[in-house]
Design a protein around this nucleic acid. Structure first.
Lengths: 258, 258
DNA sequence: CGGGTCGTTGACTCTCATCAACCCTCGTGG
DNA sequence: CCACGAGGGTTGATGAGAGTCAACGACCCG
């Protein structure tokens, strides 16, 4: 019903600030980036932004809200493979690959900007510095995937969940969406289970023990980490893989007016 | 001790053929690619090509042999996160990221070409079509990572191993390193375990049952898949994620002379 | 022929999945 | 204002899939 107002002007400036830091953009680069055509859209929680098998003809940037990528096995089990926060492209690959290899769905209500594939491609060819900056996004995503493989492959349930919580804490903090290790986690326990390769029941039990042990505090969907060092140790969390030296802080503020 | 002879001329042509198909390269692009500076090196099985935490100053292309990426948890468990075959860059991210987030190690003896980071960066900026073609490599790698997350996260041991075998069958076939669903698997059972998040003992049992059921045939390190459809079904394997429409067939022949 | 790596097998254990209730909260509508 | 329903969270009982431990066997290389 109600739609948040969008400030169109700030939409692409989001990207600009992010990419400025990764490559030496000149005025022509900046202008080209800001002149990208886009279509704004708001989607409701749980709606699909992309489906596996779709032909790709546009790329989607999240302006506000959270989304996740997932795949479903033939047996029907779902695995969440990625979480996207404001300021992220959810499918930069759509600019260069032909067919979607996974689904993307909204966790929360999302404000999205869709950019035509052709416009992206033209931008890359005319502005190599921008292409480089965006490529770095892809590379960091790849690094996060690697860590997720380790997480579901070699950590026990406790560490897995702790690791997920640590990763969010850092990513959200860098994005200006968390402070003092407290943030709103937009996932249900079932979704946490799908992200960690566990069952909702087991996730529930682990969360309770983490809470009981004082490693986290929960209040509704809010999570606080009173003892970062302790949780970090339980998780075996090392943030090298986030390549934060290439991610500006306070990048993405929610782009919403009341 | 013995070093295979390398045919330098064919070294970079490998890449050229691969990237030709992904973007419209012109003569200047081709020439720049072929003129990339590189240093050849042969490494023995199990030697490290890259270590987590290393500062990155060069990119490594595999000319012959197999390598794998892995990470080790604080508890000491190892998870293999990627497998690289001839014709692959093992660490394209080294051109643009600053610190290695995982280890890369040789499965077999490997013939490698190391290309300075600066040369790669200069190439990207001067030749956007090449950058685009290589970026596609990164995107396909990302897609494979996503599938691996699903594999270790949501499939049982049987499907997991079957899936790994299916993936190799297709990738090696496309690279011209397998025929009729028979190929040499350069991994020990312990390494298969590290790639699937299982234990060597369990991998052994599953392999034996797959063999007993006629889904695979083993002879030393060679694996044959007598019934592709059946194994594919057990694995829940769908090759969309390999984006083979963007990967030329018969790309990489082992570049080794006796 | 000796040593090391890798593969194989059995017995036992344990983490996590499954199944099944029940509860709480919140939004909706009568 | 309260009844209702639905989604999500919580808890217990039980079981299965995979891990652990341990020993032995096969093969390869020097």
């Amino acid at each position: 019903m109600r739609r948040s107002a969008i400030v169109p002007d700030s939409v692409l400036k989001l990207m600009l600030r992010k990419f400025e830091r990764r490559a030496a953009l000149d005025d022509a680069d900046r202008q080209a980036l800001l002149e990208l055509p886009y279509r704004l859209q708001t989607v409701e929680p749980a709606s699909y932004i992309l489906r596996e098998g779709d032909r790709l003809d546009r790329t989607c940037l999240i302006l506000g809200g959270f989304a996740f990528g997932h795949k479903v096995t033939v047996e029907g089990a779902r695995q969440i493979v990625s979480v996207h926060i404001p300021g992220d492209f959810v499918d930069l690959e759509a600019s260069l690959l032909n067919v979607a290899d996974h689904n993307v769905q909204a966790f929360t209500r999302c404000e999205l900007a869709f950019i035509p594939r052709d416009a992206m491609r033209a931008l890359f060819l005319a502005h190599p510095q921008i292409a480089t900056a965006m490529w770095i996004d892809t590379l960091i995503d790849g690094s996060i995937f690697r860590e997720w493989v380790v997480n579901v492959g070699r950590r026990d349930a406790r560490s897995r969940i702790a690791h997920l919580l640590c990763e969010f804490a850092r990513r959200l903090e860098v994005a200006g969406l968390a402070d003092e290790y407290r943030y709103e986690l937009p996932m249900t326990q079932e979704q946490i289970a799908d992200a960690t390769g566990l069952t909702p029941v087991h996730v529930n039990r682990i969360l309770k023990t983490l809470d009981r042990e004082g490693l986290i505090r929960r209040d509704r969907r809010f999570v606080a980490i009173p003892n970062w060092a302790a949780l970090r140790q339980v998780a075996g969390f090392s943030e090298i893989y986030l390549h934060l030296d290439q991610v500006p802080r306070d990048l993405a503020r929610p782009v919403q007016a009341a």
